[in-house]
């Protein structure tokens, strides 16, 4: 399926730009992969060459385990690949996350990757990029998803932690190991008690510190027994594992946009859900998409039917991009 002037098309590996002969966040084995950000469902091993933003590079190296074939350029710098001009622009999703702007013969398409226009102290601020065509994620494409400012959520987390401490409990907070975990850590009040992290979370901390993000002192969980009064940040993947079961007397929380809906939290039996997301909420999606001034909008990553219908009724030419290529594991 060709999207517009052959700038982008959908192939089984993912989005493909013929003018520059490269893929964006592809699967499989391609000659050149242009990467939006270092989450595992966007940055995969197996490609011959990688291109990403400068601040994404070290994370991508950790993710794919090599560095020889990774090229990076600063945000905003245009690089010619074949007949295409490619540049990266901050997406505000996680450290180094980018939207990819592709210009061919004066036509401009932007692939959003994952993004959020909301404030996040731990990564570069989202930049609105005017374009003709916009491929947008729509993970939280319903108006029931409305985020509060992160300061408010940080307060809630600290308050919860403090209360658990007073009740003689530890606090175990699940947060995706790259991005969300650091965002949570950045807001913790280290006066309350010691802060621990699962090794998967810990391994990304230096990347953030090197990028100038201030984080409190965080210990790696290492066989300690008593976590009363402490907080432990761990990836949701270990939620049901023996690692987690070893912790006695801890209250369990989860930081994710999905926690906006009570059913989601209760079914998993978390004690507390904190609505903290690294994706755009409904208003964020609508504002960004209309703000780009794009004539054509394609939605991926999520159930885009409602958002697509809403934008179409608002007069924006919107449709849902064939999902099968983008089937992905839930990140949050």
């Amino acid at each position: 399926m060709s999207l517009d002037n052959k700038i982008l098309s959908v192939r089984k590996e993912g989005l493909y730009c013929e003018a520059g002969d490269f893929y964006i966040d592809p699967r499989g084995h391609t000659k050149r992969a242009v990467i939006t950000h270092a989450h595992s469902d966007h940055a995969r091993v197996g490609h011959r060459n990688y291109l990403c933003s400068d601040p994404c590079k070290s994370l991508l190296q950790t993710r794919i385990g090599s560095k020889n074939n990774i090229e990076s350029i600063p945000f905003g710098e245009k690089k010619a690949i074949g007949n295409a001009l490619v540049s990266f622009h901050p997406a505000g999703h996680i450290l180094g996350s980018a939207q990819i702007r592709i210009e061919v013969n004066g036509r401009i398409w932007v692939v959003s990757g994952d993004y959020k226009p909301q404030k996040d102290r731990t990564c570069e601020s989202f930049e609105l990029v005017p374009c003709h065509g916009f491929i947008s994620e729509c993970t939280f494409g319903l108006p029931v998803y409305q985020w509060q400012p992160e300061e408010k959520i940080h307060q809630k987390i600290n308050h919860w932690w403090d209360k658990n401490k007073k009740d003689d409990h530890g606090s175990m907070l699940f947060a995706y190991s790259l991005g969300k975990a650091q965002r949570v850590l950045g807001g913790l009040d280290s006066n309350i008690g010691p802060i621990y992290a699962h090794s998967a979370v810990h391994s990304f901390l230096d990347h953030y510190r090197n990028a100038g993000v201030h984080l409190p002192e965080v210990k790696k969980v290492n066989g300690e027994k008593n976590f009363s009064g402490a907080i432990v940040i761990a990836p949701p993947a270990v939620e049901d594992s023996s690692w987690t079961r070893k912790f006695r007397n801890v209250k369990i929380g989860f930081a994710s946009g999905w926690m906006a809906i009570r059913g989601q939290r209760r079914r998993k039996n978390f004690d507390r859900g904190f609505v903290l997301s690294d994706h755009a909420d409904w208003k964020g999606l609508v504002d960004v998409i209309s703000g780009t001034g794009a004539e054509i909008v394609k939605l991926t990553h999520g159930n885009g039917d409602a958002l697509s219908r809403f934008l179409t009724e608002e007069g924006i030419n919107t449709s849902v991009l064939n999902q099968s290529v983008f089937e992905r594991e839930e990140l949050e």
């Binding site: 108006p143 409305q146 409602a306």
Partner: peptide, 26 residues
Amino acid sequence: HSGLPEWLIEESHDRVGDLAETISLL
């Protein structure tokens, strides 16, 4: 009150499952 079309309220209700909760979020 929210300026959202009614069908979108329905879609949201379908996702959330609980009408009281849906309206509260909207």
